[in-house]
Design a protein around this nucleic acid. Structure first.
Lengths: 180, 180
DNA sequence: CCGCTCATGTAACTGGTTACATGATTTA
DNA sequence: TAAATCATGTAACCAGTTACATGAGCGG
């Protein structure tokens, strides 16, 4: 049998989505990624379909073909799949799951001093206004979520918290740089 | 001439580090990644050295060989490199620079409901204690930074803010799930 | 002289991307 | 019937990883 090496983030995610929406097509999973505001993954066909087949080959999911002439398949988790999903998301957590998550804005900020002072101000100002807009977008997105879907709701609140923390951090920086 | 397509995150970072520590060796850049608590990049030799050569080929950095028998080279930014660095880190920001940064813990949380209730509690509890530990580690790391290095200091505060926000988000979730 | 750090490099791999293509079904 | 959407797929590519290797210089 194939050695059960750890799941990728994307694999875990897909497994989770198939668990949640079971039975569902690979296409539905794909759409979930495309709709998500957290555009970390493109949900490209070239990523999803091969991945789903891989999961099927490892017997973590099972797909039943529909009778229709479309070659559409609806997938469900197998019990092995459930176990793997559990193992992926339950503690103990890998260090990189707990560690400070990467943030491209913070990465750039690190080298702020390389910019002309005027540009530094522009950086801080622009970042703040853009994040504010993003906050509104995310709040709207959250409001559009079905109230019963607690998981998504709380996850969205986590995203908002991350944005909010970034915003007040930048405000603090700006206050320090330009007192008064 | 080679088309100036946008810099990768890693490319931007390396350019920034060479700017900051100029003149410095590729090895020094590498060490910076290895020392960093935000272990998003491994700083593997296989990533850094080819990348540095690429930057040199594009005339964004210039390396002067030392006289010693080691084949060590100290790099500096060229003016073209400075411009590219500016372009990378100054506004306008790409959408994904502003968007909610990815967070593996939040990703897992999304599927919390797949776990047995007991395990859900364990998830929240374990996550909180682990993050608390990580917070302490990061605070210590920040304290060890030279007080003059404002850039690193503020960046570290940004990281702390991210961790803190995650922590209080989880506390909020826990309060909601287990009132009282 | 031994082992550690400095310093650079390569080979094989992997996971994801873009871009494209196909065909069935639904809707205007 | 034309356009949009559902549904699946592949080929070429790319950045970064692990794992390994080489050799110089230095401290004990």
């Amino acid at each position: 049998m194939p050695k059960p090496r750890g799941l990728t983030e994307l694999e875990g995610c897909v497994l989770g989505l198939i668990w949640e929406k079971s039975p569902c097509t690979a296409y539905a999973v794909r759409m979930e990624f495309l709709r998500s505001p957290s555009a970390h993954w493109s949900g490209s066909a070239g990523a999803i379909y091969p991945l789903v087949r891989r999961l099927e080959r490892q017997h973590l999911i099972r797909g039943e073909a529909q009778g229709d002439r479309r070659r559409s398949k609806r997938y469900r988790l197998t019990s092995a799949g459930r176990q793997r999903l559990d193992g992926w998301l339950a503690p103990p957590f890998a260090p990189e799951t707990i560690a400070v998550p990467p943030d491209p804005l913070r990465t750039r900020f690190r080298f702020l001093a390389a910019l002309h002072p005027r540009q530094q101000v522009a950086f801080l100002w622009e970042a703040q206004t853009q994040i504010q807009k993003e906050l509104l977008r995310c709040e709207a997105d959250m409001a559009s979520l079905p109230k019963a879907d607690r998981a998504s709701l709380w996850t969205a609140r986590g995203a908002l918290a991350a944005l909010g923390a970034r915003l007040s951090w930048l405000e603090e920086v700006a206050r320090d740089r330009v007192p008064r």
